[in-house]
Design a protein around this nucleic acid. Structure first.
Lengths: 240, 240
DNA sequence: ACCTGAACACCGTTCAAGT
DNA sequence: ACCTGAACACCGTTCAAGT
């Protein structure tokens, strides 16, 4: 009956398993059910192996997830579009729009990269290609007149902001399902906005659904505007 | 010998337990050992009660943690300084400096508020006092000439940025201990910066320790600069 | 109404094998 | 060298009591 009935007592031959096969299965599992549903037992069952077999290739669960995040970071980098040719401000805007779009379209990548440690590039190759990307982004800003430091910091600020938005959206999404929309809206309905004239006019904005859409774009514009203002000031200042 | 020897067979009297006592114990436990170390069993042992006793007051672990976050949000609000009297830009800067300082000084609050769902204010009172705070912050910006919408969005952008920085610092802190500093630095050492002239000059900045300190301030200044620039443009535009 | 223990289905990992 | 099952110490929660 079960597909196992044949293999019930068979043991996998020596070279039949591999790091790559485990990672591939893990990626599929996280894709389908999310990181929080991922467990060593479930992966073992999916791959039809003993749980302990994976401990030959990975020290522990965390080590496996780290390798998985590294793989996710590689896939993410491949999805970034080529944006050469834009002026610096449009370049930044499009870069971080693409950044957000990719993570929103592929929740696996978001869960493995954004929601886990900020530095996923543990392997040498991944780290190298990350730095190359960074170098190109910094170059765009330096060519536009920013100092190297200002360029690096600008990229960092925008990254943190974009990551913050994605984390916010994620946390809202999975807490907002049952308990919040009910309890939160009930609590919200009871609020008396009489003493809060300003909030009364915008409190529609605090509806998560409404807020998130415009929010990211607005902050992106704000930070780029700050950069433009900074650039103009330093351009005037030195004089000679 | 053990303090339990007396009470070994005694059963707690009816009114001896309370929501407040459980939350207090839970807060202490999370303070001491962090959220990820928190478990129902540990809390029960600490309070010297049966594990199931807590399920009379809370539906489940998540429900308990939600209530705990609500309590944490209340404590956070009390720690915010009064900043009336500052001009709008200095006000924003000081507000979010205080925001970050509190969470850095009290990791419990950070773990319970920043690292969990973005909307912790489930109870009516907590939500109300949050909105009152929001109203005051928006008022500062509206008085300075911002539209209500721009003011609300400005606050949201700065919140997301500040939260993003705190999350980054947190994730770095607990992943950076053993595995990263060793493996990451090893990988970093192998990188050939020959083809990356800009990064070669700033890559000290990417050392987490160095980066984090100036990073927050820089982004704060950048966003406020963007706001100033926006304010000047709208002030000129309408004319009459 | 309030507190509890036994039992269940999970989890990650150690250890001592098997081949 | 590579794969495995039994066993351990945990976890959250259901259920069926106790008082």
């Amino acid at each position: 009956m079960s597909p196992k009935s044949q293999a019930e007592t068979t043991r996998r031959p020596r070279g039949s398993l591999s790091r790559a096969e485990i990672l591939q299965g893990a990626f599929a599992l996280v894709s389908d059910d999310g990181v929080e549903a991922f467990s060593m037992s479930r992966l073992a069952k999916k791959l039809d192996i003993g749980v302990m077999s994976m401990y030959w290739y990975f020290r522990n669960k965390d080590d496996l997830l780290d390798a998985l995040s590294d793989e996710a970071a590689r896939r993410f980098a491949e999805l970034l579009p080529d944006l050469s040719g834009y002026p610096w401000d449009e370049h930044l805007r499009e870069y971080f729009r693409a950044f957000r779009r990719i993570y929103r379209e592929q929740p696996v990548l978001r869960d493995l990269i954004i929601m886990r440690a900020p530095m996923q590039y543990r392997s040498h190759e991944a780290l190298h290609s990350y730095f190359e990307r960074l170098e190109r982004e910094i170059a765009v800003l330096v060519d536009a007149g920013f100092t190297i430091d200002a360029a690096a910091r600008a990229y960092a600020v925008l990254s943190i902001y974009a990551r913050g938005c994605l984390i916010n959206e994620r946390l809202f999404a999975d807490s907002g399902q049952e308990r919040n929309s009910a309890e939160y809206n009930a609590a919200l309905g009871q609020i008396d906005f009489a003493g809060m004239p300003y909030l009364a006019k915008v409190h529609g904005v605090w509806d998560p659904e409404v807020a998130m859409e415009g929010e990211f774009e607005h902050g992106l514009g704000l930070i780029i505007e700050g950069l433009r203002s900074m650039l103009e000031q330093t351009a005037k200042a030195p004089g000679t």
